[in-house]
Amino acid sequence: MKSPLSLSSVMSFIYLACLALFIAAPMLVIVVFSFDANRFPTLPWGGFSIEWHKAALNDPMIIAALRNSAIVGFGTATLATILGFCAAYLDYRYHFFGKRAMMIAVAIPPAVPVAILGMAMLAFLSRTPIFGSPTAIIVSHTVIASSFAMALIRLRLTELGPDLEQAAWNLGASRAQAIRLIVLPFCRPSIMAAFFLSAAVSFDEFMVAWFVGGVHETLPVRILNMLQGQVNPKINAIGTVVLAISLTLVLIAQRLARTGKETR
């Protein structure tokens, strides 16, 4: 039975819709104007065009930045997921002195302002040979993303009863076999989710990448550098692409995290 819409529920719906519109409006503007034939984002709309998207994809610097972002995103996702799993498993399975301190160290980077994080990374990495390379960006992004990866996987591990892994040992599995055959399959959805979320975190991050990347620009850094030069309609096109990729990654991650909950 459907109850008639009360005034208060209509009001709260309108309120929520306005809120969502307010948050999404800037992104919508970018998307809309990226398909505008006008050179400058002005009203009225100059008609539909994919000219700026074409122009962006033909810009070798943008393509290079996209490639860098892909490499950094993939590298970060891989490393952060592995480290995140290790930290989560360590926390789940073992008790040792200093565990609390270690877990805080893993959890804290996202809480540090990125400008400070970026400067700290810069100060540290400039003394190492990897400074200014994509590797440096990967390492820095891994510091941030592994904390998200750890949280996602740790959450799943709380659902793994302590008996399951011990049962595997009891039935003849070595420690490594038990992790490979029991713990990893059990955590698979959350591991995949952690991978995509880490990739999204890396793909969106610009401050730290700008500090430590040197001449290697990721896509967000390229956008910033273009903005500093001039207003370029290509920026809207790149923005749209970045938005699409990030949204896709986050949606996949969310979807996977949810399937994990269903298959306990």
């Binding site: 009863g161 008996d163 040992w169 009891n170 003849g172 059990f186």
Partner: peptide, 28 residues
């Protein structure tokens, strides 16, 4: 080690592996 003892246990919680089929559980 526990893995080398051949002292299989039936657990109060059963500890069956939820993502394996019945057959794969027994074959484990």
């Amino acid at each position: 080690s526990a893995a080398e003892r051949d002292t299989p246990m039936v657990w109060q919680s059963l500890a069956l592996f939820p993502f394996l089929s019945v057959e794969d559980n027994v074959a484990f």
